[in-house]
Design a protein around this nucleic acid. Structure first.
Lengths: 119, 119
DNA sequence: CCAATATTTCCATATTCGTCGAAATATGGA
DNA sequence: TCCATATTTCGACGAATATGGAAATATTGG
């Protein structure tokens, strides 16, 4: 995942209503949920939600498909995985360092992971 | 990590200059880097960078300490780990589902992870 | 104390963001 | 076709963001 894509995904998730909507979709699984159901559950007017879904869609975090009169939104799990990968690689000193424990790291000044590609 | 903290961390990272600055700090390790060095490297005026560091600091993503005339900023790896944990738990259908593969999931309509705590 | 260095605070500005009323569009059913 | 339902598009608004010039603050060395 490129930096610009990670930036888009982070920005998309960094908003209350969007994070809530996205989490509902994640729990709903690949089946997805109709827009109206989410609007009702979150107490957000449908047009406002459309705005937020656009953001999530442009960040490749959700997909849409029409089912009758309803628009069914579903989470794109692959993108979240890519984002996690990006954050682990680029923003956590490498998975090996961060994944297991609260990040033990060397005390010397040599960068611990030259291997991490910096774009 | 609470939802509000995750939101703050996501918002803090969802900006070009801040993401760059944070990544520099991650690579620098616990030793950290002086503000001026980062300002020069990124080509951002020092006062603008102060603004961004404030955001990162309020999101608990970095710490500061004074060393002579310089302010040394350092990444807080623990917070990034918490964020990754939050995203995995709440936004990826549970680590067990997402970590290994591009998220294979059941086709039935039963929510796959009732266990995931929703705050 | 004074000058130089490093960073922050204050302030103004342009841009982007989140929100929602109102109208428009799409679909299914009688 | 006409109506009800579901969602989007349009337009406007206040709030929050990102930016940087200018001045203020803190620290070191002479």
């Amino acid at each position: 995942m490129e930096k610009i894509d990670a930036l888009a995904a982070l920005a998309a998730l960094a908003q209350d209503n969007r994070l809530d909507a996205y989490r509902m979709l994640v729990q709903a699984g690949p089946t997805g949920l109709p827009a109206g159901e989410i609007a009702t559950a979150l107490g957000v007017p449908p047009n406002t939600l459309t705005f937020h879904f656009d953001r999530l869609r442009h960040a490749a975090l959700v997909t849409v498909r029409r089912d009758g009169r309803s628009m069914i939104y579903a989470a794109r799990f692959d993108t979240m995985n890519d984002l996690l990968g990006y954050l682990t690689e680029n923003c956590c000193g490498g998975a090996a360092v961060c994944a297991p424990e609260p990040c033990a790291k060397p005390a010397d000044k040599t960068p611990l992971n030259r291997k991490a590609k910096v774009r």
